[in-house]
């Protein structure tokens, strides 16, 4: 990574006037319209919004899993033309490869890139340490808890060193306590790796805990309502006055 990248001279992600329409028996559905924002290199951005605001559609378009009707998504300057190793995906349902061990899952992307065995094993070991799963390298996903599975999914996405980590409600399926733990671990990993993260969630508290900026979406058509910059230093405490203010403000924007 060059210094100019790190300084964010150009945005890491540029979502330019993205729209998505579907034909349905009830007529045309405007899932997204005129969505336009940037994510800077090294930034942590959360995308919140009520259901039906097109969060997941936007996630899939940025990930290159779905095409937009209008507009373009640029990643490090190039238009996204499909999923690839420059984009790390983490889903709510983990989607681990059940036939591969933990280390097999984490090493999957490296195998695709033809990284030799020695380097691969070293990198997998480092990543498992990073996500706190050393000792589980030879376990199969079926033996892991939800939180552990999500750590594997995160390590697997990080393995190929993507330009952007794109996460869709990654902690939506774990219990509240695990969720807090995973959030603080994610922040540690973020500051350690300097990754750019775009994080979709419907949990406003989570967004205020994690993000540099929160993009609030609105429904019908799915669009950006407002972008809220969270100025509070990390680690953030839910009992802080400013935390509550941000929380209330975003909730209001969502309800409006």
């Amino acid at each position: 990574m060059t210094d100019s990248d790190r300084d964010g001279v150009r945005p890491r992600v540029r979502v330019e006037d993205v729209g998505r329409r579907y034909d349905s028996p009830q007529g045309v559905v405007r899932a997204l319209e005129g969505v336009d924002f940037d994510v800077d290199a090294g930034e942590f951005v959360c995308l919140v919004g009520p259901s039906g605001s097109g969060k997941t559609t936007l996630f899939r378009i940025i990930a290159g899993l779905e095409e937009s009707t209008t507009g373009t998504v640029y990643l490090a300057g190039d238009p996204v033309e499909g999923p690839g190793p420059d984009l790390g995906l983490v889903f709510q349902e983990y989607h681990l490869f059940p036939w591969r061990t933990v280390s097999g899952n984490v090493g999957f992307g490296l195998e695709q890139q033809g990284v030799d065995r020695d380097r691969r094993e070293r990198r997998v070991r480092d990543l498992l340490e990073l996500v706190g799963l050393d000792g589980f390298a030879e376990s199969y996903p079926r033996d892991l808890s939800g939180g552990m599975k999500q750590r594997v999914a995160l390590a697997r996405a990080l393995a190929v060193d993507p330009d952007l980590l794109l996460m869709d409600e990654p902690f939506g399926a774990v219990d509240a306590q695990t969720k807090r733990m995973l959030q603080s671990e994610l922040l540690d990993i973020w500051s350690e790796t300097g990754k750019t993260i775009l994080f979709v969630t419907h949990d406003v508290e989570e967004a205020v805990t994690l993000a540099d900026r929160v993009i609030v979406m609105a429904t019908d058509p799915g669009r950006v309502r407002e972008v809220v910059e969270i100025g509070t230093d990390r680690p953030r405490s839910r009992s802080d006055a400013s935390f509550g203010e941000y929380y209330e403000r975003i909730m209001e924007l969502i309800r409006a």
């Binding site: 690839g84 190793p85 790390g88 889903f91 989607h95 490869f97 992307g109 393995a159 190929v160």
Partner: peptide, 10 residues
């Protein structure tokens, strides 16, 4: 979804 993940991993 598994196919999407695999594509995203190269």
């Amino acid at each position: 979804d598994l196919l999407d993940v695999a594509r995203s991993l190269g």
